[in-house]
Design a binder for these strands. Structure first.
Lengths: 240, 240
DNA sequence: GCCATTCCTTGATCAAGATCAAGTGGAATG
DNA sequence: CATTCCACTTGATCTTGATCAAGGAATGGC
């Protein structure tokens, strides 16, 4: 099962997963070309429109999804319907709680999403025999833990204005296809309701804060979702 | 480096770390008897009174601490001094961000704490050669991620009353030395300020909510820190 | 192009929790 | 035993963000 010995070339990568070869951003959960080749008989590429569920809260996990394109939101819901988004995942993250039989949260396509789906048992077997992949997944988990804890500070201690500015920075950072930078112009991959659910606010407050940032010439907004950051410096100051 | 082959008996465990043999609670980060024996020449038992720092935010990590007794709080601070506690750790958790050279947060003794300190390089080498330990640490990280995300729901979407009830349940669960139960009588291991910083509230609000729970006969409080839960059912209802 | 629907914005009012300001009580110190 | 100190409690008031309500802009179907 140690696939590092296999003589696999990029040309062997099955067509359906060519697009998985997205650029890695430091530590991440993506499967590499060799691993995808190894798994090719088991993987399926799946396209989900925005709003479709990938995994439901408290449902059995029988597959992991390697994100190829788009944004996935992870959320938890209280009995009375209050919802909190507990994470956003971008390509090439791996979606799914490792080593659990039941998902502790819902994973839903925030934007239109393409994923490469791998059956749970198959991936777990691959992990066992592949120390490098295991390390990569450990690193993704630890990075997600760091991000969750950073976000706890935002949720617990920041004002509405700081929360909205923080989210714009987060998205600008993660959507940038290039290494360390931030995207100056981008489309919000999520609705106002999603933003509110991520920040622990209401849609009205989010809307007001975005309007305020627009009025202060920190950002410009067109067509509801299209954002241009006019000053990262001001935005960072406002993010606290 | 595969220590699972070593012929080690419990009687070989160095005296200083005998107490490390606390009961494991399902998945956890504690080192087991064999590992502690292996590490005995490198470990030091350290006692810190409440309030003492184990690791500072943004400082170099040169050791990991295996908690033997007490509660450790993990916190992050904004430039202007606002603080958020992002996790509590109990025996036998391992304190310290794995595979990072710099700590993303402060780790501080919440109560009086005893830890077994292992130099970073030594533990990392042990992990590399010990698949079972690696799995245990992976499980602790994933469990901490689950807990952080659960807490994000509390921070983002619960009322002050629900937050305080949730924290009492969390502490009652973690302080119980027995497997699956909850402790009915216990001492809060943290101050009102710590509770406020964990819940994203002020000490005044925490105090008012505790008084309210006392008035409603859900809990009784004596000597500020000593809590008796009179009705777990009511407490759970109030935790939302 | 028109309509319906959904998503977003803006305004007015309200309430939860923060802030400001005294207290209270228990433990430690002399 | 008195005193100080610190952690906590309680009350009064204020502010932030929620709620309620209406209207506007984008999107999809026909």
């Amino acid at each position: 099962m140690d696939i590092s010995r296999l003589d696999i070339h990029n040309s062997d990568i099955p067509e359906l997963c060519k697009s998985c070869e997205v650029r890695h951003k430091g530590m991440c959960g993506a499967l590499n070309a060799m691993e995808l080749t190894f798994l090719s008989k088991h993987t399926r590429q799946i396209s989900q429109p925005a709003g479709e569920e990938l995994v439901g809260e408290s449902t059995d996990i029988d597959a992991y999804d390697n994100i190829i394109r788009g944004v996935v939101k992870l959320s938890k819901t209280l009995e009375d319907g209050r919802q909190q988004i507990v994470g956003l995942q971008f390509a090439p993250d791996l979606v799914g709680r490792l080593y659990a039989s039941e998902s502790p949260m819902t994973a839903e396509a925030a934007s239109d999403v393409d994923v490469c789906r791998v059956p749970r048992r198959i991936l777990e077997r691959l992990i066992d025999g592949n120390p490098e992949l295991r390390k990569r997944l450990m690193d993704q988990s630890l990075r997600e833990l760091d991000e969750a804890r950073d976000w706890m500070v935002t949720l617990g201690r920041k004002t509405a204005a700081e929360k909205v500015a923080s989210l714009l920075l987060l998205i600008a950072t993660h959507l940038d296809p290039d290494a360390e930078g931030e995207k100056r112009v981008f489309d919000l991959p999520v609705s106002r309701l999603d933003i509110a659910d991520y920040l622990g606010l209401t849609i009205e407050t989010v809307s007001r804060q975005l309007s305020k940032l627009k009025g202060e010439k920190v950002i410009s907004i067109t067509a509801n979702r299209h954002i241009e950051v006019l000053s990262f410096t001001k935005l960072r100051v406002r993010a606290g």
